[in-house]
Design a protein around this nucleic acid. Structure first.
Lengths: 191, 191
DNA sequence: GTCTATACATTGATAGAC
DNA sequence: GTCTATCAATGTATAGAC
């Protein structure tokens, strides 16, 4: 049996609201009412609207990094590894499009300190993808002229899903992630 | 000699502000002060904050469609045509990253009527890319299993630039657009 | 067509009772 | 830890003088 605390209910409400209306467009009253509480109750569990955003953003960044790190460790074959990394990264963004939207589009709304903290996760995500490409080139299996640029482009495929993906739409996350993984291999495989 | 009207100065100010702080995070006072005017002067030239957004968004959508349509007409060779389309679409998003950000990220902030109007431009952009891929397959030059999905992915490369691209950064728009065009050809060329 | 002044609603956050 | 009531600041938009 899982107990959901008031603090967590507020975070879930914030995810809904921020993803739907953006951070600036969301009122603390909206968050409170989605959580079934009064406006004042928000501040018993969270310091401010921004600290609620930081909780969502930090957790989202951590989970995205974990997804791509696990995939990177799943195989030593450069092609299979790349396929797993792109598939899982894109699938995570489809399955978590609301959190992903907050991670990507409300980055600027964080305080300077909080933004600096989540920035380290972003760098780690990019580095993980760059390292996988560079290793594939070293093993003579991949052909990648511009490793940082290509790494960024591969991540863009997943990231851009959060702009429009809605669960229950005409295409499943699995379908899109599989497409992205196929395209990634075509983009980088030595011919 | 180009004369800039007060109306245009306000639009330029709105582009700056909306791109920097988002639509909901921008105040009409901020727009007015960036244009060197009083808050009240805004309403002499524009009906509301949302109508200012609509002006920016509609013009941005039109220009993006024009860019990809011109590129589509620039060649009948599927590979050269695809290269031109992806190059010019990505370059436009790099060169116009502030307008592009408003086009992409403030779509939901438009009224229902205004959103429906710009939606037609979005469909045309997607259709233009899909048609180019389908024709390349018909000519036996391209190998694209999922035409709509691949078209979307190619557009994503350019669109995602607006999330982070800043003029004067370490990579030029030309450099990124060239990379995207190369990746596009690798993704779709028959081997 | 610009301004100052302001109407009126809503905002993030707090006070204090229970 | 929840509520009602409220504060001070700020929001969009308008009124009316020049």
């Amino acid at each position: 049996m899982t107990t959901i605390t008031a603090r967590e209910r507020l975070i879930n409400a914030a995810v809904e609201a921020f993803a739907e209306k953006g951070f600036a467009g969301t009122t603390t009253r909206d968050i409170a009412s989605r959580a079934g509480m009064s406006p004042a109750a928000v501040y018993v569990h969270h310091d401010s609207k921004e600290s609620l955003l930081f909780s969502v953003s930090l957790d989202g960044h951590r989970r995205a990094l974990e997804v791509i790190t696990s995939a990177a460790a799943s195989s030593t074959d450069p092609v299979n590894r790349l396929r797993a990394m792109v598939y899982n990264f894109s699938l995570w963004h489809a399955d978590n499009s609301r959190v992903g939207r907050i991670v990507q589009y409300e980055y600027h709304a964080l305080t300077d300190e909080h933004r600096a903290e989540v920035a380290t996760y972003r760098r780690d995500i990019e580095k993980t993808m760059q390292d996988a490409l560079a290793d594939g080139v070293d093993q003579g299996v991949l052909d990648v002229v511009d490793v940082p640029g290509t790494a960024f482009s591969l991540l863009s495929l997943g990231v851009d899903l959060v702009r429009w993906f809605e669960p229950g739409g005409s295409r499943s996350g699995h379908e899109l992630a599989t497409l992205h993984a196929d395209l990634a291999v075509r983009m980088t495989r030595l011919r």
